[in-house]
Amino acid sequence: MPLLSLALFLFHESGLDSPFIVPVAGCLMILGIVIAGVWSSNRANEMRSRERLECIARGVTPPPTAEELAIMHGKPTADRVRRRANIRLSGIVVLSAGVGLVAFFIALSAILQQREVLSGAAVGLVPLAIGLGFLIDTRLQSKEMSESNSSSSSSDVA
């Protein structure tokens, strides 16, 4: 029993009963996940480079990386194409979320018959603008990729 009261005393006095413990723990958890992801990616890069160095040490030609293959063939890397597709998908999702928020607040204003609720529709303009920016970026990347492909094919002809 005295051990339990001592533990309760330490818990109470240490500040762990603060209402901010949950948000702080959540932020620390997110920080831990980010650090683990960075460490994992660095570890994977280190293992790939070690494998390539071992191939070179044995006198075996290491296989080309995806970037080297793309450079040899004059095509955009799969990473650039995948990145463009991911940006387009993100743009569509965020744009749809913005439209959904605006529609929600307009419908809520109509249901409640209160005009002040329409100010919440302005919240939807932020993701709407971000989504449009993503889609514009995708369009610009597509143009750049087509221009680089056409310039590389015209240099092949000459």
Rank of each mutant, 00 (worst) to 15 (best):
P2L: 07
L4D: 07
L4G: 10
L4F: 12
S5E: 15
S5Q: 13
S5R: 11
L6Y: 09
L6I: 05
L8S: 13
L8N: 14
L10T: 07
F11Y: 15
F11M: 08
H12G: 08
H12D: 11
H12F: 06
E13G: 12
E13H: 15
S14L: 02
G15I: 01
L16G: 05
D17W: 09
S18D: 11
P19S: 07
P19D: 04
F20E: 14
I21M: 05
V22Y: 09
V22T: 14
V22C: 02
V24E: 06
A25T: 15
I30M: 08
L31W: 13
L31I: 12
L31S: 14
I33E: 08
I35Y: 13
G37H: 04
V38H: 10
S40E: 14
S40L: 13
N42W: 10
N42K: 15
A44W: 14
R50N: 13
R50C: 08
R50W: 06
E54I: 02
I56P: 01
A57L: 08
P62H: 07
P64I: 12
T65L: 11
T65E: 07
T65A: 11
E67T: 05
E68L: 05
L69W: 08
I71W: 11
H73I: 00
T77K: 01
A78V: 07
R82C: 07
R83K: 07
A85G: 08
S90Y: 05
G91F: 05
L95C: 10
A97K: 00
G98M: 01
V99K: 00
A103G: 03
I106E: 09
A107P: 01
L108Y: 05
A110F: 08
I111C: 05
Q113K: 09
E116D: 13
V117K: 03
L118C: 03
G120W: 00
A121R: 00
A122W: 06
V123C: 03
G124Y: 00
L128E: 01
A129S: 11
I130H: 03
I130G: 02
G133R: 02
F134G: 02
I136F: 07
I136Q: 11
I136Y: 11
T138Q: 05
Q141Y: 01
Q141P: 00
K143R: 14
E144Q: 13
M145I: 10
S146R: 13
S146M: 09
N149I: 10
N149W: 07
S153V: 04
S153K: 12
S155C: 02
A158R: 14
A158N: 08
A158F: 11
